[in-house]
């Protein structure tokens, strides 16, 4: 149980760079190093790092408070006073983008952490035990999967009430079946392998087989899915904010900024372009990262190396 969230954080941010830059022993470390040395991976990771730093330092680097309305400075084009211009109520767009990055990252991380935290263990259990356990868990997730992600998100937010945290929870629920099914598929494949049979033959208990053998061997696709899901969650949060169900005004979020900017696209293009660019950068970063991870974790390539 505890492994999953830890693994999530590791991929999302810190682990690869400092420790694995040299010459790691374990295959996982090796693949992470590969990811970083892949230009796509480095670029993706770089963007993510920059965004994380920006989000963390928001109070110090934002030139203004994101909700302060500067009187007589409404819809100003980018200038030295407002680097990215102002919105319709005279708020500094740069500051709002900086603060909005917190929402996007928070939602992405919470959604993926909870989604993986619930999805992976249930997937392991379903795949390993089979039978009734499998049937019940999988039918439950099938039912969730039957609805498109955005629809489930809207339904959950409608029940819980709008807000960034609730949007994150909604997206976590959307993520659970993905992780669960992915893990289960991998466990089904691995559990009949010789090393697993050997482990059971020497008397290892179920918990040990799962924790020591099945989970580590299923980590590769899960890692890729983590970064993919995070990108998806960020996008969906923007969509929820866009329809007014995410972050609540006046607090900024990229999605709601994009929505607000719609009415002013022609008079004040900067209002829409910059939040859109920020969102695109985050998504490109995450996609590059997941692509690089996928390449690095590809077993065929590992063998070649």
């Amino acid at each position: 149980m505890a492994d999953a969230p830890a693994a999530t954080k590791a991929t999302a941010v810190a682990r690869p760079l400092p420790s694995s830059w040299r010459r790691p022993r374990n295959p996982l470390g090796l693949s992470l190093m590969r990811t970083v040395r892949n230009p796509m991976g480095a670029f993706g990771l770089g963007i993510m790092l920059v965004l994380v730093v920006i989000a963390a330092l928001a109070p110090f680097i934002a030139p203004y408070h994101p909700n302060v309305q500067h009187d007589l400075a409404e819809l100003e084009p980018p200038s030295s006073r407002f680097l990215l211009g102002t919105d319709e109520l005279g708020r500094d767009i740069l500051s709002r983008i900086i603060w909005g990055s917190r929402v996007s990252l928070l939602v992405g991380i919470v959604a993926v952490t909870i989604g993986a935290g619930v999805g992976i263990p249930t997937g392991l259990a379903a795949g390993y035990f089979g039978g009734w356990t499998d049937a019940v868990i999988m039918r439950l997730w099938d039912a969730l999967l039957a609805f498109p992600g955005i629809l489930t998100g809207i339904a959950v937010v409608t029940v819980l009430g709008p807000g960034a945290i609730n949007a994150a929870l909604a997206l976590a629920i959307v993520n659970i079946p993905e992780f669960s099914r992915l893990t289960r598929a991998c466990v089904l494949r691995e559990r009949e392998r010789e090393y697993v049979l050997a482990s059971r033959c020497v008397g290892a208990r179920d918990a040990r087989v799962i924790a020591a053998h099945l989970f580590p061997n299923c980590l590769a696709p899960i890692l890729v899915q983590l970064s993919l899901s995070m990108g998806f969650a960020v996008l969906l949060e923007a969509a929820l904010s866009f329809i007014g169900l995410g972050q609540q005004a006046p607090d900024p979020s990229w999605g709601s900024m994009l929505n607000d900017s719609r009415a002013y696209l022609r008079q004040a293009p900067w209002f829409g372009i910059f939040p859109g660019l920020a969102l695109a950068a985050l998504l490109v970063g995450l996609n590059y990262l997941s692509d690089a991870l996928r390449q690095a974790l590809d077993p065929r390539r590992i063998n070649v190396a």
Partner: peptide, 17 residues
């Protein structure tokens, strides 16, 4: 390039206000 493009049209719309 995108930034430039974004700021470019910034000037003309101002008189609208």
């Amino acid at each position: 390039a995108t930034l430039l493009a974004a700021c470019g049209p910034g000037a003309p719309p101002a008189p609208a206000k």
